[in-house]
Nucleic acid binder design. Sequence first.
DNA 1: ATCAATAATAGGAATCCTTACTGATATGGA
DNA 2: TCCATATCAGTAAGGATTCCTATTATTGAT
Lengths: 137, 137
Amino acid sequence: MDATRRTARRSTRQQRLVFEAVSTTRSHPTAEWVYEAVRRELPRVSLGTIYRNLQRLVEEGRLRSFERAGLTRYDADLELHDHFSCVRCGLLMDIPRAPEVLPAERRLRARGFAVEGRTLEFHGLCRKCRRGASSNG
Amino acid sequence: MDATRRTARRSTRQQRLVFEAVSTTRSHPTAEWVYEAVRRELPRVSLGTIYRNLQRLVEEGRLRSFERAGLTRYDADLELHDHFSCVRCGLLMDIPRAPEVLPAERRLRARGFAVEGRTLEFHGLCRKCRRGASSNG
DNA sequence: ATCAATAATAGGAATCCTTACTGATATGGA
DNA sequence: TCCATATCAGTAAGGATTCCTATTATTGAT
Ligand SMILES: [Mn+2]
Ligand SMILES: [Mn+2]
Ligand SMILES: [Zn+2]
Ligand SMILES: [Zn+2]
């Protein structure tokens, strides 16, 4: 049976390298960053291929994506988690998400909204930047 | 004294109309939306003027801005508040922010981070879309 | 190994939002 | 009036992403 599915899912070298580039960093990289990383292994790769595979991996649920400062960034960590970003150095750090339900979410549900998820990001100064904050400009 | 400040701050008709367009809606409009709104009063206004004044108003702290789906959106509500967005109809709704401190923020401070603020957005189905969710595609 | 069918690629053009530039115009003070 | 300066309209330029097309790679079957 199942004669309809003639072709199996491909996994090209390009796609594997794109996924690997994103999944081996915690820096929430941009397409350009992934491009440079993949190029080191596959110098002839094209930027279009990077975008195409990133988008495919997001559709397949193997990566998350979000925007920041006009750029799309990618994250291979599929666990629900929140973020902290440093307004000085640009660090974008993961924060584990505790199972607690936020009061605001309870209020939304009580009003009849179906809450499926959330995005939570704190911003401020990381430890390193905090130390130099008073002396430097 | 204060002879250095020779020219007073101008407030042009264009700037007033840009601010009015943003501040009289709760839809978190885009630059294009503001452009169309201002054009109804001032048909010869240019898109560059819209962008320039939006950017100026944000710098002056009279508007907030943030990105969503590749577009910059503007908000005249300076009160700290959170958002709910409907994944089906695109509604982006304000949620008043209660004074409670989130546990995740306490944990960050305990680890030495200086938390200055946060962005919190829930997503799911609004009441209207929830009703039609099961029957419609 | 060869073949046909199909999926993915490289390279570049096109698109979309936003910013930067330029010459014209308006404003307010000396 | 005359000058300095701010803002304007219009348009060019920029940057990130998507789209397009001919080419190449992969698969399954002969
Ligand atoms: Mn993350
Ligand atoms: Mn708002
Ligand atoms: Zn920092
Ligand atoms: Zn809705």
